[in-house]
Design a protein around this nucleic acid. Sequence first.
DNA 1: TCATAGCGTTTAATATAATTGTCAATTGCC
DNA 2: GGCAATTGACAATTATATTAAACGCTATGA
Lengths: 183, 183
Amino acid sequence: MDIGAKLKAIREERGMSQRELAAKAGLTNGTISLIEANRTSPSVASLKSLLDAIPISMAAFFSTLEDSETPKVFYRAHEFTEITPGGDGAVSLRQLGKAEHHALQVLHETYPPGADTGPEAIAHDGEEAGIVVRGCIEVTVDGQTSNLQAGDGYLFDSRLPHRFRNISDQTCEVVSACTPPTF
Amino acid sequence: MDIGAKLKAIREERGMSQRELAAKAGLTNGTISLIEANRTSPSVASLKSLLDAIPISMAAFFSTLEDSETPKVFYRAHEFTEITPGGDGAVSLRQLGKAEHHALQVLHETYPPGADTGPEAIAHDGEEAGIVVRGCIEVTVDGQTSNLQAGDGYLFDSRLPHRFRNISDQTCEVVSACTPPTF
DNA sequence: TCATAGCGTTTAATATAATTGTCAATTGCC
DNA sequence: GGCAATTGACAATTATATTAAACGCTATGA
């Protein structure tokens, strides 16, 4: 979100100086300098003042800004979004990117000892697959049960009832994929 | 800009609690409480975190928010936008509302003693008119000159060259209108 | 050449947003 | 009813944005 560059571009396009814009917006030139350098994240109120003074609507500003963003490709571990159902110390599901914008949903799943997704009644189209990368886990799909070790994997139709249980005394990690994404 | 209500509406629509949303967004429930009560104006960064966690784009958020706003009708004195040309201690032009969204532009003009708009070469379509509310001012339009007192007024075609000078020792105030607006 | 005015940046002080810990009110569950 | 869990709100602290006043720079003109 390069707000600074965007603001600077619009401001210069209209031939305004930082001081000029600041005066119209009721802020100071120093503030604009910091915002344009992305050294501070303005409050919504401040940004609105600036855009009103230009003038341009918030919607238009963010619309062109978000459109011009290059699609994000690489994600650091801490950038995954936590979509853990319970939120407590049970299963942890960490999603890669914003699945709602893509056709593919990839999760990094962590099952502490004793973790259990329960006999979910989830029923959605598409397919699910995953590979165990650490520990082992018991997977049940439509009646079939198997104990998968690190390196093993699974692949099934998402409409079938399925359940994951870590019956070992060691944390288990799985990388799974799902298409189309489900929420 | 009722950001608080809008955020609360979207959050509740998705059945999330403040704490739930806060956890996903990496903020605290207290912050969300304050934002929803409009007791604080969140930073753009904070708002983006919240909207990403919902998820909804900034553009979409402000688009629906700004669309649903009822048109502003009343303006306090301090809400006028300063469109003074020079910016210095000369003439002060204070515009009522956002003229670019309307067909009518109304200004509250202040001419300190000695103020002079100079023989502007402005040439745009439309008409201009005004009424002196305090002090007096010398107005020249296309060669004709007149000294207007409080209560007097003027009305002319905007394409004619015009000039305003305060040759008295008292500040002069004028309320003027212009259509269509010019920038 | 010196002054003047405009520009964007930086820094210390101040105002404001965000966190932390706690609270009363509500809900669900024996 | 009574307990536990969850919710949204609040006061005090901490973190951060914003201000006000400086700085260095460039251009312009006497």
